[in-house]
């Protein structure tokens, strides 16, 4: 027997032998990174590996994922699209603007993006949101996984331009991309402080939690614009 439990909009726990995180596959019959397809009563679920995806790990670490079927998302650091594919599943009636600046990653990502109508690939530097201001509409969520030392600033700049009032920021912070030698805990405290006050707009942190055991030395952060 396969059992399906909804965790939040578009995100499920499918139990077939073992419990697995999953989304409803928008691109029927296709997998992206070697995950499994599990059909249940006419719906195709696609398993979501939290070890391959920071967002997947955040779901399991009980973050509220502020996504609905028609949400608009700005995704910074798309890489080859492992996580973007699940976001695309979740916001089946929405839009994912996916920014990635490495041409090599974009090359892999394009195949995926071309099969999913709600993905809009942008080869651009997330640190320069002006360069895609003529394309991206206001969004409900900015998801950021760029592993860059100036990530707080990148988040603020994008939020200033694109984040809706009441919208959210989900951020994955990699300690080692900020400072290779320092203690991760201290790095995280610093970064959270930066989000709260270093740049305009400022953020209010709703939740911050490490992503162990799925990702070492990573902090997940959920925030919204400070009123």
């Amino acid at each position: 027997m396969t059992d399906v439990r909804k965790l939040s909009d578009g995100i499920f726990e499918v139990t077939k032998g073992k419990k697995q995180l999953a989304t409803k596959n928008l691109d029927l019959g296709k997998t992206v990174y070697g995950e499994k397809l599990i059909p249940v009563e006419g719906v195709e679920y696609r398993t979501w590996d939290p070890r391959r995806s920071k967002l997947g790990a955040m779901v399991l670490k009980k973050f509220n994922i502020p996504l609905k079927e028609d949400s608009k998302v700005l995704y910074l650091g798309a890489a080859s699209g492992t996580t973007v594919s699940h976001v695309s599943d979740i916001v089946s009636e929405g839009a994912v603007y996916a920014v990635e600046f490495a041409p090599r990653s974009m090359r892999d990502f394009i195949g995926l993006a071309s099969r999913r109508k709600n993905i809009f690939p942008l080869l651009a530097d997330a640190g320069k949101p002006d360069s895609y201001a003529h394309i991206v509409e206001p969004v409900d969520l900015i998801f950021q996984d760029v592993a860059q030392p100036n990530q707080a600033e990148i988040a603020a700049r994008n939020a200033a331009r694109f984040l809706n009032e009441g919208g959210h920021l989900l951020l994955s912070i990699k300690a080692r991309s900020i400072d290779t030698a320092a203690n991760p805990k201290e790095v995280f405290t610093e970064e959270v402080k930066k989000l709260e006050q270093a740049f305009e707009p400022r953020f209010e942190i709703l939740m911050a939690r490490d992503l162990m055991p799925y990702h070492e030395d990573h902090l997940g952060v959920l925030a919204k614009l400070k009123e």
């Binding site: 974009m106 071309s114 394309i135």
Partner: peptide
């Protein structure tokens, strides 16, 4: 709107990748 934008962003990204 979305289907046009999808095609346009794809085309632009492909162009940039080939220029790279």
């Amino acid at each position: 709107y979305y289907s046009l934008l999808h095609e346009v962003t794809l085309e632009a990204a492909k162009h940039q990748v080939s220029e790279a």
